[in-house]
Design a protein around this nucleic acid. Structure first.
Lengths: 353, 353
DNA sequence: TTGAAAGCGCTAACAC
DNA sequence: GTGTTAGCGCTTTCAA
């Protein structure tokens, strides 16, 4: 078992001083070529790696990013992490993950665990509970301690920091517009309860689009769905609920779900009722998850570009971090990532009119 | 902006020495009650947190686990990380993630990035490329440097370390046995190319079960599928391929796919051919992903218990780490996590015969 | 009861 | 060219 090599050991092995060794390893011309080569060969042989903890202590930075997310078992967040990882890696940063499970207190605990010098900055998507409570002191305090934060997806106006978001309202509008363009007139919206901005904005987009097309806006056609557990029971309840809406409004000809699960579930319910998708009914979901791709028919969705958002978030954070080293002020910026409609088979091909 | 508090600053503020402050914070009885209270109050007020980097340097441990996985956008791996996170968090460990994208060199780079003192131990699932190359020197060397490794899922016999695996062979056998018990006689196996143990073992389980039930083993009924990209094209190819098998063997009455995608795809193809699932054909998949749950009909699968495997891996690693502190030898162990069959709607309810 | 000093591994300014 | 020293933030031994 090779013992861990340190400058000290190399120095004593070679009968040199620690600083000579340190400089030699950096190929510093101060040191005689002879000694440089000797040291480098020795270091290589014993596979010397400078201890990163010591370096962090000295440099007062860890080259580590803390990523705080509500949930990791979620295609979108996994994609985002993927993007963060990629960029971080290429810039020699490590990524520490903290999962909040949508809980405010876990968000705080997670952040506190890292705020002790373990990380240089945060990338975070707020937990639902935090959004409900609207208590952002932990975030503000983090920023006050000069630890930069980049929010993504679930960002919040109250805190001044970099943000990477999508235009949910516009996205909702775009989806509905597509349905309208296909000739759909009675469009069901499956959305979340209001405390999540996300759902609210997408709902607003829904309304915007309807109004813009002179289609009446009917509260009856908006189903607000509460927390959905993992259980099969919750799933059945959802199906049941959607089914009831169809009973009341059998002439629904379009569905927009603010996430995959809503959309796929609704599509399944509709098909079980004998409706042909997309002939009689078009369905659009949200988020480019795996479910949409493998659903039958393949689901048309609004793509969130999770990977790209992760990349952007990491770039923004690292950029700020490096500018901080040089004492350059960088104004906070909010980047809005464009969403696209990924057209698959749950919507009609041709635009009627 | 609050400046970062350190022992030094507290000491000078309070006119005490650093070591007195340090002890006072630990409530050491050596220090006068008066001073203890003063220091503690001060520290609390300024929100003092000991710098973890300094602690790591001193203690020569980071309380950080490095997790190396092939892919994060994958339900199973996300679940595993979830389990690791949970356990790690509860024991005050941090989790650093490294993604290899199934590449051998990225695996090495990722590990080297962390082996410089950033982490105390690894939890890893080997990349496909590593398994193909069968070159495990980086792993052996890591262990030689007294950095413990726990392998999960894709483990390998050649390296002595803790392992958390499932019995893929047994799992395959169980799935097939279920199909046989339902009265299925001509069972299609969708598996991967052989270099991945996983696929091989599940295939062996398939054969075992057939032979045990005196059902002829027909190579024609085994489809070995290569790397599947993310593209819609790959997906169509897969569908096409499965379709061909059905043309040759229209009387297939059971399908076992070694992963969700194979199974769901095959189920879709079968249904498009007008087959009724599960009346005419039963389908079983592998891995308790989201796809299986939302597929129509809901897919019966072999559950891999990703979350539990993550928990186990983290417990095993942390346990070893803490035993190392006390110089207690712990023999390596391989834990086999039991798989279950999650019966849903793609298999028949009643056992015929 | 308090504090000085050494040391974890490294870098860098400054002497020699 | 090479080495000494101080310092990053902390703990702990030992001396006062």
């Amino acid at each position: 078992m090779k013992p861990k090599m340190t400058l000290k050991k190399i120095a004593s092995e070679l009968g040199l001083s620690i600083s000579t060794v340190s400089k030699a390893l950096k190929n510093n011309k101060d040191i005689s070529k002879e000694n440089r080569e000797k040291v480098q060969a020795f270091a290589k042989f014993y596979n010397y790696r400078p201890n990163s903890v010591a370096l962090s202590l000295k440099n007062k930075k860890t080259k580590t990013i803390g990523v705080i997310i509500p949930e990791i078992v979620h295609h979108y967040f996994a994609k985002v992490i993927s993007g963060i990882e990629e960029v971080a890696n290429s810039k020699e940063y490590n990524v520490i993950i903290g999962v909040t499970n949508e809980s405010y207190s876990k968000e705080i605990i997670n952040m506190e665990m890292l705020i002790d010098g373990s990380i240089d900055g945060f990338i975070i998507s707020l937990s639902k509970q935090t959004l409900q409570k609207k208590d952002y002191t932990h975030l503000q305090e983090t920023i006050n301690q000069s630890i930069p934060i980049v929010m993504f997806d679930r960002a919040v106006e109250e805190i001044p920091c970099d943000k990477i978001i999508i235009d949910d309202r516009e996205a909702g509008k775009m989806a509905i517009q597509r349905l309208v363009d296909e000739g759909r007139k009675k469009i069901l919206l499956l959305t979340t309860k209001d405390y999540l901005n996300i759902g609210r904005l997408r709902t607003e987009g829904y309304r915007d689009a309807l109004l813009a097309n002179q289609i009446p806006y009917d509260e009856d056609l908006i189903v607000r769905i509460g927390e959905l557990g993992d259980s099969d029971e919750d799933q059945r309840n959802l199906e049941e609920r959607i089914n009831k809406v169809f009973e009341l409004h059998p002439d629904i000809d379009g569905i927009f779900g603010v996430n995959e699960i809503y959309a796929v579930t609704a599509m399944n319910v509709a098909r079980m009722r004998g409706l042909d998708v997309p002939e009689q009914l078009s369905v659009i979901g949200f988020s480019d998850g795996i479910l949409s791709k493998y659903a039958r028919p393949h689901l048309t969705t609004v793509s969130q570009h999770g990977f790209q958002m992760g990349e952007l978030a990491a770039e923004t954070l690292i950029n700020r971090l490096e500018k901080m080293d040089d004492d350059v002020e960088v104004p906070y910026e909010t980047r809005v990532v464009k969403t696209d409609l990924i057209i698959r088979d749950s919507t009609r091909n041709k635009i009627t009119n």
